[in-house]
Write a protein that binds this DNA or RNA. Structure first.
Lengths: 233, 233
DNA sequence: GATTTCAATGGGACGGCGTTCAACTCATAC
DNA sequence: GTATGAGTTGAACGCCGTCCCATTGAAATC
């Protein structure tokens, strides 16, 4: 058959991404194939390669949607809560809830790697920055405007931490921790980390100062190592 | 050809796992295939299925080796350092170093998922517990013997946190953070989290008794949520 | 209405994959 | 010397991603 003109290019793109997302949502990333997408939308596999470079490109565009969904969700949380420990915690829980509501979809973000030489595209990085900005905003009350680096770092630590808990517990690779009990860990992480920030906040820098010995092979210096210590370093 | 008897079953198993590990180490998990293993050891693909159930089984056994290596490494760190903040930090850094020395190998632990219905085998869980035990030991000085639950939880939070940082930065999915700058985040996490623990240390054990989360859409209570509930908030 | 054009499309082809299994081979046991 | 059966092979099956080009039919031209 030739041109069908039943769908505009944009419609077709959407059709493909919708199908890809649906497949992932009910079979996981490993269930995704160009042929399966083609079957679902009643086109031939070749058509997909008119709209996208390859399957990785399709997946990347599905990831974009997920990141957008997540961002919208987190931004809406920020609208209701001014920067505070509570806001941080709510963000963390929303992240976690998101991952539980659509586990396979969320998993794609981390299961999927760029093929060897290829780099994560800039627009992808930008979307990540937007997400991080949410966390940074929520941390507003914990830092002065001059502590921008510290705030950015704290946001990344918290983000990665929550992600680590979610990710390992989902995969059953955190000993004795199930997805169920993971929320408690998230609460613990956020609560304790923020307490650590506050403990170091007004006071001087070195929360556990004594240990600034670089003993042995590894130069361990917990004092300055706790880079977070808001006042300083 | 028929029986070769050039290798005992154990030798053959080792041969296969060595080859699998080598392939993963220089091409990543996606480069691994039964056929490629067969080529490297000069056997036919079928032979692999005499020794292992399937490729997942092979991978799982490679994972076992990695977990063992990591455990040995962490245990040797513990021998040199008594429980302390420093010991925790050294463990974290060793984990991180390990992941940088053999990135693809380490990645397998998390790239690879059990096929749908299958569960992570018990011996795998046991190996995870051994790793966690290292972290728990290093946290000895931060908890009294009666606070076993709290210590176990803190160990998991730290483990997952360090993992999250490493994992996201390696995959380039932590905005503006590269594998290089990740160590700073690890130091920050460990330092600040431990500071948070110490800030709340004196407080009694009902650390999280009140936090029956699950209430409402978002029952936020940063105070009780903080597992180690530092006085502050 | 007839003709031309050419982008969209289908679908076969290629080389790879995991996995299975019948057939073959040969060290060992007798 | 022979029979046995475990170890091994390699072809076969049904997938996969990707490529490529003959075909098609909507739009442009006459």
């Amino acid at each position: 058959m030739g041109r069908r003109s039943t769908h505009t290019p944009e419609q077709l793109r959407k059709l493909i991404l919708d199908a890809a997302q649906a497949i992932i949502e009910d079979q996981g990333l490993s269930g995704l194939s160009a042929r399966e997408i083609a079957r679902r939308i009643s086109y031939s596999p070749g058509t997909i390669y008119n709209m996208f470079d390859n399957l990785d490109d399709v997946i990347l565009n599905v990831e974009a949607r997920i990141l957008d969904d997540l961002r919208e969700r987190l931004q809406s949380v920020l609208l209701e809560a001014p920067p505070s420990s509570e806001a941080v915690l709510r963000l963390a829980r929303n992240y976690m809830d998101f991952t539980h509501e659509r586990p396979r979809l969320w998993n794609v973000l981390f299961e999927h790697y760029m093929p060897e030489g290829t780099d994560v595209p800039q627009w992808y990085q930008d979307k990540l920055e937007e997400l991080m900005a949410c966390v940074e905003t929520s941390l507003g009350s914990h830092f002065t405007p001059s502590q921008d680096d510290e705030r950015r770092r704290a946001a990344r630590v918290l983000w990665a931490g929550v992600h680590g808990i979610t990710s390992l517990s989902t995969a059953n690779k955190l000993a004795s921790v199930t997805s169920q009990s993971a929320s408690r860990l998230v609460d613990d992480l956020v609560g304790t980390y923020l307490a650590g920030l506050e403990a170091g906040a007004g006071v001087d820098a070195d929360s556990d100062s004594g240990s600034d010995r670089g003993s042995g092979a590894i130069a361990v210096d917990a004092g300055t190592a706790a880079g977070g210590s808001p006042a300083g370093e």
